[in-house]
Write a protein that binds this DNA or RNA. Structure first.
Lengths: 164, 164
DNA sequence: TCTATTTATTAGACAAGCCTAACAAACTTT
DNA sequence: AAAGTTTGTTAGGCTTGTCTAATAAATAGA
């Protein structure tokens, strides 16, 4: 168990899957990891060796797999990026959820903290807008996307009406 | 020269750099590619072999490097994703341009066509808003991001004023 | 409890991409 | 045009992450 280093996308994926299994089935086993990751079991064994060498998992031969504190933390942060990206793609951009999931799975490994933070706030901003469902401007984007035509900004229309 | 296949992120990067060099300096040479990609020249030679085997570049020993039609097309599409991402990150989210560039370089290889299209339209939507600089709602996001506080939606404020 | 099945590990191969060292071709410069 | 410099290639090695085949441990069933 050495000092924690930066992990590759691949290794981050393993951590994510392990965390998911622990959450869903309370334990993570090589077989299940291999199924979720769509790799053969020897690849999992190899990955676990790397991960435990770097201090992210605890794994004794033929035993269950567990996350260290560092592993837990990293898995959570990847998961957070994943969830945020899905939410952004689905609720703001209205991307099909299947495609959104695929995009999120890749982007979660590359997005910068700054962009993560901005997007998080952006979603929050959209969600807390005092409108019924989506904010008006976002509805107006939906319309623009579908038709290519701009509705005149409501603000303007109203301002003009007020002036008259 | 075989049939065109899907390329790795790495190979897409090589194509991008080759296209850039052709544009800027009218020819692409191994040395320049190696400098821009921050790899040693033998890595470039190897990459060029792969790329030409897959029909994306034309390259004869000790000669200049050129893109095939497929190579050109792919390079352009990667470039388009890159530029769009930068624009989105910088103009919509106001991410620092250096970080935006880093994010874009990674995401350009993974983003789906659907998300690309949506974001493209989103930027267009923002840019064509009949406001001075950024649309009001986006300014209101800027404020929300900075202060954590929501300005009441202008639409609402005005509607209320109209009612009074 | 002892055998059969499932699960995990080891050993060894392979592909992608990178590297260094050594060599070869091509320019440059006088 | 010969010498030196720059540029490109080849050969061979390393790492990451995958695979298959063989083996070993653990579990389940009769």
């Amino acid at each position: 168990m050495e000092k924690s280093k930066k992990l590759s996308s691949n290794m981050e994926d393993y951590l994510e899957v392990i965390a998911l299994l622990k959450r869903e089935k309370s334990v993570a086993r090589v077989r299940d990891i291999s199924r979720l990751m769509k790799v053969k079991t020897p690849s999992v064994t190899a990955a676990l060796n790397t991960l435990s060498k770097n201090g992210f998992v605890i794994h004794e031969r033929y035993g269950y797999v567990d996350l260290t504190e560092d592993g837990e933390k990293l898995a959570q942060s990847v998961q957070a990026r994943h969830d945020m990206l899905i939410k952004f793609l689905v609720t703001v951009l209205k991307i099909d959820s299947k495609i959104a999931a695929e995009d999120a799975c890749k982007m979660e490994h590359t997005i910068s903290p700054q962009t993560f933070q901005k997007l998080t706030k952006f979603i929050e901003f959209v969600k807390t807008c005092p409108d019924h469902d989506r904010p008006d401007w976002l509805k107006s984007f939906d319309h623009y996307f579908k038709t290519g035509k701009r509705l005149r900004c409501k603000v303007r229309q109203i301002k003009q009406r007020v002036k008259q």
